[in-house]
Design a protein around this nucleic acid. Structure first.
Lengths: 225, 225
DNA sequence: GTCTGTTTGAAACATACGTTTGACGCACAT
DNA sequence: ATGTGCGTCAAACGTATGTTTCAAACAGAC
């Protein structure tokens, strides 16, 4: 055949190992031996380890950003002028992620982990690369958030978006470990879809919390409902 | 003198480098050359790189957990039987963190970053070590959270605690970068204390969000106030 | 001063890494 | 049949890592 499946075998193995161990803690030799290909194949097909990492993201993120764009299109079309709500925007994002065709049942979980790692490892180089490479859907999501939270000042909105991002990236990046703990402690099985279903209301409520009073402790719970 | 300051110089350098670059991306040679001590000093004083990492955490976490314990003591004493509220508990934690004597103005930010890394790097080995080593204040905080959110199921509470942890660790760990962006974009200056003041209401609101409906999108914002 | 235990110093150790090399096999066009 | 290009392979390259070694410097006790 003109093109063997070596490339895909490498991508599959790399994706899984990166998610389990992080990028710099995963060597090319681990990847090639898991994929049962020759060590030199990575540099032959991808050029370098860094290019491999980018390729792993590209394989998922390029079709995902297309899916996301059309989900945003549908959402805005169905709203006819009025800006989509916060809940709708967040759900459009998570639905798009969950609906992506998966290579296996761990697919989503693996990829969320990779995104989380991209935000915390290698001094954020990967984060900058991804935000640049996919600035279109990224910027659009930010604009939707702005439209959905007109009551927030720009500064408040900025920080709260970081809080959301943090909760998401962190949770997803360690979702395997967290699921293990939950299984051992409470005997509960969890899917990534369920985590997302718990995360979205948390984020939406935090995003719409009453403005921060810059004076510390009160002696009653903040009324929420 | 009986004991030189070599140990502290190593700890200072390691702390900063670990926070900037992660654990496995920081070599002993970087640490010793930044600390201007001999390479062998690390293995002589600490035994191994892993033991150094543990020592870095210990230097901050041991006094901090003492401060935290007494803050919790005060809080529970002032409540006389009735369980402290969520807001009070969260504030007791952040106050304790902010009030810690700092080696420099980046102190808090550096340490938050390290905690965040501990949860995401090295397959969670560090996380397990820390939760074991400081199970006392850790478990107590968890119990306080439980008392402050009796309406939540154990599973819901578990995940929301992870969300809080993620938002906090992520934000604090990249607070330097985030503050820079905000300064350049909106011309606003921010302190760690102000970030905390914005974070706590976000977390409290998310923690007390109405139970997750496991069915996706609605067409109205979730009512919050 | 001399001895003793502790801390530093420069150098080497063994190992692992990402990358490169050059020979080899194989399909396919000529 | 023959040559050409692509993919694979074992082996090596140079570099960087964590750790160890052993001699020298230093302190304080006698």
């Amino acid at each position: 055949m003109a093109q063997s499946d070596t490339v895909d075998r490498i991508l599959d193995a790399a994706e899984e190992l990166f998610a389990d161990r992080g990028f710099s803690e995963t060597s090319l030799r681990m990847i090639t031996s898991k994929a049962r290909v020759n060590l030199a194949a990575v540099n032959y097909h991808f050029g370098s380890k860094n290019a491999l990492i980018h390729a792993v993201f590209g394989r998922f993120l390029t079709p995902f950003s297309a899916t996301l764009e059309s989900a945003f299109d549908d959402l805005e079309a169905s709203c006819e002028g009025t800006p989509p709500t916060l809940n709708q925007t967040l759900w459009a994002l998570t639905e798009s992620a969950v609906r992506m065709p998966q290579r296996n049942e761990r697919g989503i979980s693996i990829f969320m982990r990779l995104l989380g790692l991209a935000y915390t490892q290698s001094q954020g180089h990967l984060r900058k690369f991804l935000e640049q490479e996919y600035s279109e859907p990224f910027g659009r999501f930010m604009r939707l958030l702005k439209g959905a939270t007109p009551q927030l000042s720009a500064v408040d909105r900025y920080w709260r978006i970081q809080f959301m991002l943090g909760a998401t990236a962190f949770t997803m990046s360690s979702s395997d470990a967290l699921q293990d703990i939950l299984r051992n402690k409470l005997g509960v099985e969890t899917t990534v879809q369920e985590i997302a279903a718990r995360l979205v209301p948390f984020l939406a409520a935090g995003m719409q919390a009453q403005d921060a009073v810059l004076i510390p402790p009160t002696d009653t719970n903040v009324p929420v409902a």
